[in-house]
Amino acid sequence: MPPTEVIAGTGPAFADLNSAGPRESTAGPRTSPFGGLTVEDDDPDGEDTLNLELPAEFLALRAGTTAGPLGRLAAWGPVTTPAGAFRLVPVRVDQDVPLIHRWMNDPAVADFWELAGPRRRTEDHVRAQFHGDGRCVPCLGVLDGTPMSYWEVYRADLDPLARRYPARPHDAGIHLLVGDAANRARGLGSVLLRAVADLILDRRPACTRVVAEPDLRNTPSVAAFLSAGFRFEAEVDLPGKRAALMIRDRVLRDVL
């Protein structure tokens, strides 16, 4: 399964585990003359059903600019960190996937994100994040004007992860990878994790915790979360990995 985190990291697949799965159909979908629509013939009452399929570019714009489950992430603005000015910028699929694809093919990243290979594999993963009414927003992390990391900010309480731990309403989750090797192993991951976790808590008053689930094998990532003020909560079994559940609490942010 594709990822959770970082430094080189990975994260859970975002399939909806609450879904009952696809219904059987004898005819299957048909293309509608309206464009962007498919017609399903499997309605139990014998009537066709129209499914609207919106392009990822539109969904990316919507995720960044409308008040979905995460709010208007594109309007969160920059924050000052010890490493420089940092901000999250929602991914533009056509423009940003080539860079993300290059990062995914770095062996240190591929070991955990499992998205190495052709560009289409990375593109399909990124596009998939835009489905779910804005509950996950893939972003580039831009440091002093230079894109240098990939993030997925998501509503953990609306994610399949919520089945694996005592989730609270409005819990936010993050996945991260630092793109280039030159930016790793020098404490930058910890700096940015702390900055983004605090940014989420500042911009989302209803959120009391930021969670993450790095692969237990990825010791640099686990160490980075600990250094960023996250605490280790438990080990959890997720599809494809055993993870360390890490939590940054609002009430402890000035202590850890």
Rank of each mutant, 00 (worst) to 15 (best):
Q129F: 09
Q129L: 14
Q129I: 02
Q129P: 01
Q129S: 09
F130G: 00
H131M: 03
D133N: 07
D133Y: 04
R135M: 10
C136Q: 11
C136S: 14
V137I: 15
V137N: 01
V137S: 06
P138E: 08
L140E: 07
L140A: 12
G141L: 03
V142D: 03
L143W: 00
L143S: 10
L143A: 10
L143F: 09
D144Y: 10
G145W: 13
G145P: 12
G145S: 10
P147L: 11
M148F: 12
M148N: 11
M148P: 04
S149R: 00
Y150D: 03
W151A: 00
W151N: 02
E152G: 02
E152F: 10
V153W: 04
V153S: 04
V153F: 02
V153K: 00
Y154H: 01
Y154S: 02
Y154P: 01
Y154T: 00
A156Y: 02
A156D: 01
D157G: 10
L158D: 00
L158H: 02
L158W: 03
D159C: 11
D159K: 01
P160N: 07
L161C: 11
L161G: 00
A162L: 01
R163N: 13
R163Y: 08
R163S: 07
P166A: 14
P166F: 10
P166N: 14
R168T: 12
P169I: 09
H170F: 13
H170A: 10
D171A: 08
A172Q: 05
A172L: 13
G173W: 02
G173Y: 00
G173V: 01
G173I: 09
I174H: 03
I174E: 10
L176P: 08
L176Y: 05
L177F: 12
L177M: 11
V178H: 03
V178P: 05
V178W: 04
G179N: 07
D180P: 03
D180N: 10
A181N: 07
A181E: 15
A181R: 15
A182M: 07
A182K: 13
A182E: 14
N183C: 13
R184Y: 10
R184I: 04
A185P: 01
A185S: 14
R186H: 15
G187S: 04
G187L: 10
L188F: 06
G189N: 06
G189V: 02
L192T: 00
L193N: 07
L193D: 05
L193V: 08
R194M: 07
V196F: 02
V196H: 02
A197N: 06
A197P: 07
A197T: 13
A197R: 04
D198V: 09
D198S: 08
D198C: 04
D198E: 14
I200R: 12
I200K: 11
I200Q: 05
I200S: 09
D202H: 11
D202K: 05
D202V: 07
D202E: 15
D202N: 08
R203W: 09
C207P: 00
C207I: 00
T208L: 07
R209H: 13
R209E: 14
V210A: 01
V211S: 02
V211P: 02
V211I: 15
V211K: 03
A212Y: 11
E213N: 03
E213Q: 14
E213S: 05
P214M: 11
D215P: 05
L216E: 15
R217L: 15
R217D: 14
R217Y: 04
N218W: 11
P220I: 09
P220Q: 13
P220W: 07
S221E: 11
S221D: 04
